[in-house]
Design a protein around this nucleic acid. Sequence first.
DNA 1: TTGCATTGAGTGCACGTGCATGTAATCTCT
DNA 2: AGAGATTACATGCACGTGCACTCAATGCAA
Lengths: 136, 136
Amino acid sequence: MSTPDPAEMASLVSEWRDLLARHAATTCALDRELGERHGLGMSEFEVLERLVESPCEDGTSLRVQELSGMVHLSQSALSRLIGRLEKAGLVERVMCEQDRRGIYVSLSQAGRERYEAARPTHRAVLARILTAGQPA
Amino acid sequence: MSTPDPAEMASLVSEWRDLLARHAATTCALDRELGERHGLGMSEFEVLERLVESPCEDGTSLRVQELSGMVHLSQSALSRLIGRLEKAGLVERVMCEQDRRGIYVSLSQAGRERYEAARPTHRAVLARILTAGQPA
DNA sequence: TTGCATTGAGTGCACGTGCATGTAATCTCT
DNA sequence: AGAGATTACATGCACGTGCACTCAATGCAA
């Protein structure tokens, strides 16, 4: 049932190590370049991107809870991340009228511009790191 | 030269998001299960494993610098991780005679046993998470 | 309506991390 | 041999994270 086959297990382990290596390399490059060139962390960019991609193009706002399901962060980490974005003027927190416990995170104009500016850097890093070493 | 093809870029982005998701899921499960069942973090286990796999089977010791190239941690983080392992009695720091700046990290018997105990948990998580959703 | 469980989001705290720096040992060049 | 550069590892510090908890708002049952 479970996979006691040593060969399978070995390939699984090497797959995992490869995943770790790719993740570390990309995360490191992304954090560095986004950070020093646009003042954004990797997760900050991720959240801005999700907001831009938000279906309601007019408001570009999402519930904190929805964001929480998209980025791989605890709810508390996300709350503080939104706090940082808000302090930087990139998003706004607006109360949700239907459910006054909820908070809409709304992308500001500055937030959109910051995202557009950072996007090429983000894509360039992905292209540079992720395609490295898999020519086939 | 750089890849301005939108379709390629989109697939790269979705590859990256998939990588992020796999990493988060596996890391989270690994940290949780190794932590509560064996008192080890993911990186602690990683270091123990590298020591066990060390070529010199008699001593099973590696230079800090060698370890640094294997695990995806800053040198300072690794230094403190070794400190934690040492405090737990799983490894010992022994001075390197040839180069007295260097430190050998030597696996103790307790460290080996802890690794052997944790290994099945580690492998089980890998098998459970990494194979999820790619049946083909 | 009242009472209680549940949900959404923010917060105190401890901890692991990276960066910059410190210290000691080694190397190099004269 | 002596001076400065470099290397190996440790440490001070700030910061982002997760966990446990808190508070407010909502849903639900009696």
